[in-house]
């Protein structure tokens, strides 16, 4: 069963008066529990693909299904609900809320889901422990290293048990050694919680690490292989 899939998705951007195609009729399905890397050079349509998978944007034509539901007809609030309930995000530059502590950052998605405070607390602490930074709960992002911040981001993405996690170049902003730790952590989570991971990258090491590698070029799939 697919967690997210797109059929013949086309996305055009308007640059001035010219329509520039970013995705040219892309069909792709991600199955539950997959650990997928999407790679391709800059401008290949990688980010656009992530936007559509992340329900952050809608395709110009074609369809996107999340849990077999078409998102084309949804309004911004409903899209927000879909993101809230089904998708976790990990960003290249961590993108934590600088005024909140690690604990509060991880708690944030649960607040948006209106979870009860007591319930929130145990979930957040569990999550922080499982990404290995339980002792840093009270720190603010500015007081942590890049690796620690990305761990917080992973905890934030996973705390609500999403159907799948989108990670946008999760290792680009950290050193190789820490990057490996982060990849290991994501793999561990993938296995432990059966969480589906989709990440974009152009790091060959990351590509090798993935169980499924999709290469994109000029808005089309160049190759799609499972290892």
């Amino acid at each position: 069963m697919s967690v997210v899939k797109m059929e013949n998705a086309v996305k055009n951007y308007k640059v001035g008066k010219v329509e520039v195609p970013a995705l040219r009729g892309l069909t792709l399905s991600i199955e539950k529990g997959e650990f997928t890397a999407i790679a391709g050079p800059s401008g290949s349509g990688k980010t656009t693909l992530l936007n559509l998978f992340g329900c952050l944007d809608k395709p110009t034509s074609g369809k996107v299904f999340i849990e077999e539901h078409d998102i084309i007809t949804l309004n911004p609030d409903q899209l927000a609900d879909v993101r809230n309930h089904h998708i976790g995000f990990i960003f290249q530059s961590f993108n934590l809320i600088p005024v909140l502590t690690a604990f509060e950052n991880v708690e944030f998605p649960l607040v948006l889901l209106n979870e009860l405070p007591a319930h929130r607390k145990t979930r957040v602490m569990e999550m922080l422990e499982s990404v290995g930074i339980g002792d840093l709960a009270g720190r603010r992002p500015g007081e942590m290293s890049g690796g620690q911040q990305q761990r917080v981001a992973i905890a934030r993405a996973l705390v609500k048990h999403p159907d799948y996690v989108l990670a946008d170049e999760p290792t680009a902003n950290i050193d190789t050694k820490t990057g490996q730790e982060i990849l290991d952590l994501m793999r561990e989570m993938n296995q432990k919680h059966k969480t589906t991971f989709i990440f974009s990258t152009h790091d060959p090491k990351v590509m090798r690490f993935a169980r499924r590698l999709i290469m994109i070029r000029d808005g089309q799939i160049e190759s799609d292989e499972r290892q």
Partner: peptide, 10 residues
């Protein structure tokens, strides 16, 4: 980012 995490316009 906050909107990506599901925060609504309101």
């Amino acid at each position: 980012m906050m909107k990506a995490l599901g925060m609504k316009n309101r």
